[in-house]
Nucleic acid binder design. Structure first.
Lengths: 227, 227
DNA sequence: CCCATGATTCAACAACTGTTGAATTAGGTG
DNA sequence: CACCTAATTCAACAGTTGTTGAATCATGGG
């Protein structure tokens, strides 16, 4: 008995939906709904395909989430490596400001995913811990190296714990990127974009005063962040 | 036709499951599974009742979550009010350290809920924004007042933005409480509790150096935090 | 004792979920 | 043209979800 023509033909399509497009859709839906709230049906709708196609590219929902995380970090670490090169002889505050610029450029979007990841870190979710520690740890080591070089050059306090200070610098910067825009209009009475720029500059200056070997040395003039 | 005896008799029980007990269970399940991942059936199991009882006390799952948030903040604000009283003439760093002690005491548990709340803030979830801003804003104003008094007394830099600095102080402290324990063993090679204590002390000292009017003034000796 | 009220469970609803095996198709190769 | 492979959809599975109306019960008051 001949089958009725199907609503949408099966088989490969001229405009393929590849793994990257699925991950683009995943990023948007995970960001908006969270890990548990995001459904594969919603991700498939966003990508314009059937949910079953997701299983062609990924083993499971969790595998897809892991793949999403894995494709995010490398450019950040490579950018940071350039700044942490000991051959960079600029004053430490300018190098740290570059670090902030890199984080701003690379991470000033998709706070939803980062909140999600942070939530999973706090929750102690296995599997993700390993992945994130490998990635974040790599970035942290670059920033730590800059602080260690600053100590060696006499610009940064000898009693500083470079790793802990790296945690402070990066973590508060992420709060400025993720949370400050949302509370800016209520708390500070300024638009979100201006709040982030102001917050980053203020944080850099406070942080530098907190770690500088010479407490009376002025903070160098900081160039504007790229938009 | 007489009905079979039910598995569990209906009607009021000697040991009642009241709204607070439901919220206790909710806090545990929301903390562990997140807002979307937490189910009313899991909350009811934790409380030892039927899921339908939740609807006797709350209009919906979302209403329950809102009620959970509403019952958390007040003691924090009251504690902070005592420290921000202008009658407190102690040096500003000791008052700010008290603030840190208060946050430590009141918030050093249930990072899961706070991550969840932070995620909803970042996501821009309506309804929750208003509630959280009212609560968090109240606490922030107390801390801001201490900074303003410090400026007036000449202990804190005149060019400081008190509200932004309050955001810095509190936000990084929450990261120390929530995230530092999780990454401590991998990143710092110390147990989580020690990492938090060390992190809080280091942050207080860095923050003070960053905001002090006299950059050469030493940070006063800080008493130990309560366990 | 009777009745009312508030507090509980039961059972069901409609909808959704992650996942899978099979059917179908597009395109490339020999 | 035939065949193969990879890529797609379909339909279904078993389970879960938030929510609700009705049945049942404990307790207290008249």
């Amino acid at each position: 008995m001949p089958q009725l023509p199907s609503a949408r033909p099966r088989g490969p399509k001229p405009h393929r939906v590849d793994a990257d497009q699925l991950l683009d859709a995943a990023q948007e839906i995970f960001s908006r709904e969270g890990l548990r709230g995001a459904s594969l049906r919603a991700i498939a709708r966003q990508a314009g395909c059937d949910p079953a196609l997701i299983y062609y590219h990924f083993d499971s929902k969790e595998a897809m989430f892991t793949a999403l995380l894995e494709r995010r970090f490398p450019p950040l670490i490579e950018d940071l490596r350039r700044v942490s090169d000991p051959g960079d002889r600029r004053p430490t505050p300018l190098r740290l400001w570059d670090v902030m610029c890199i984080y701003h450029t690379r991470l000033s979007h998709n706070p939803g995913i980062r909140s999600l990841v942070r939530g999973e870190i706090v929750r102690g979710t296995e599997g993700i811990q390993e992945l994130i520690q490998n990635q974040v740890g790599g970035a942290a080591l670059q920033v730590k190296a800059i602080l260690e070089q600053g100590i060696a050059r006499g610009e940064v306090r000898q009693d500083l714990d470079p790793l802990l200070s790296t945690f402070f610098l990066v973590k508060l910067h992420l709060e400025i990127l993720d949370v400050l825009p949302v509370v800016a209009s209520r708390l500070l009475g300024v638009p979100p974009g201006a709040a982030v720029a102001e917050g980053e500059r203020a944080w850099m200056q406070l942080f530098w005063r907190g770690i500088a070997a010479d407490p009376t040395a002025p903070v160098p003039s900081l160039p504007d962040l790229e938009p």
